[in-house]
């Protein structure tokens, strides 16, 4: 039917004309295939290619990049560093975000909208900029060191940057908005009436927290932890800048192989391994979530 076949004809267009549908889908799908699907396939292929400078040859299949990684203790250390960084960042970001999310869910303040925006808006400021902010705060002549010195609390400079401590702190802050956002969506089931009911049944505030609030917010917390973890283990700008070249994680190594050493198959192999790490953690998370729900 003429009208029902066209995009604007409304929900009745169940038997849509193929042509129009194709027209609608094509541009977006082509873009996504080129910028998402194809890159992943290419990545996989390249990880099995032999290394040549700034390119990879299509002909052969070899596992040399993988063996190079797996038999080099350096990469084991890098993987370990990455996991430690991910765990530290995830744990602290979640601990620090939890009160904010709880506050935003429960507050009746008329500034709630503004406060929510303030908590998640940093997401929309460049991570380079915020990393720079942390360089200013933690730097040798930065906010913390100069404050401590002017109070004569320390003699010398305390090294807070160019090490993994700085990278961890900056990443915690940079990823907190994600945690808050995840928790806000996950806290839907929290409901002040439940707390009141529990309180009336004689639970004190500690009990209300441990027996009601914590279990109900657990899925949101778990999601937040996962999100922060995966973002942390795949980050490189912040570890690179805050680490001053002295922090080696998977992200920085991938970048290094891709743009400095120009060993693309190795960069691809590292990326594939990162992706595998990433996927296994998501699978674990889904298990955990299911366990929480039953």
């Amino acid at each position: 039917m003429s009208a029902a076949a066209l995009p604007a004809a409304g929900a009745s267009s169940a038997n849509a004309s193929r042509g129009v549908l194709l027209m609608l889908l094509l541009p977006g799908l082509v873009a996504l295939v080129i910028t998402f699907l194809l890159p992943l396939i290419w990545l996989f292929r390249a990880s099995f290619a032999s290394s040549t400078m700034g390119a990879f040859s299509g002909g052969d299949w070899t596992v040399q990049s993988y063996s190079a990684v797996l038999f080099d203790p350096f990469y084991w250390r890098v993987a370990w560093n990455t996991l430690v960084l991910g765990f530290n960042v995830a744990i602290f970001a979640v601990i620090l975000s939890y009160p904010i999310a709880l506050f935003l869910v429960r507050t009746e303040s008329r500034f709630r909208g503004v406060l929510t925006a303030l908590a998640v808006a940093p997401l929309l400021t460049s991570s380079v900029v915020r990393t720079y902010g942390w360089m200013v705060i933690l730097g040798d002549r930065g906010v913390i060191n100069s404050t401590l010195q002017s109070l004569s609390l320390t003699g010398g400079v305390i090294r807070l940057t160019n090490n993994s401590f700085g990278a961890t702190v900056a990443l915690i802050e940079i990823l907190m908005p994600y945690a808050i956002l995840a928790m806000l969506s996950g806290f839907g089931r929290l409901n002040p009436q439940l707390e009141e009911a529990a309180a009336m049944l004689g639970a004190n505030r500690v009990k209300v927290f441990t027996r009601i609030i914590l279990p109900l917010s657990a899925p949101g917390v778990l999601t937040a932890a996962l999100l922060v973890f995966v973002l942390a283990i795949s980050s490189f700008v912040t570890p690179r800048l805050m680490g001053g070249g002295r922090v080696f994680v998977l992200g920085t190594e991938v970048f290094n192989e891709a743009t400095v050493t120009l060993n693309w198959p190795l960069a691809a192999a590292l990326s594939v391994m990162l992706l595998i790490l990433f996927s296994s953690i998501i699978l674990l998370y889904q298990r955990a979530l299911r366990a929480l729900e039953t």
Partner: peptide, 12 residues
Amino acid sequence: VPHIVLAVGIML
């Protein structure tokens, strides 16, 4: 998908 992984893929 982590951006860094995508980045390598797109570069390739």
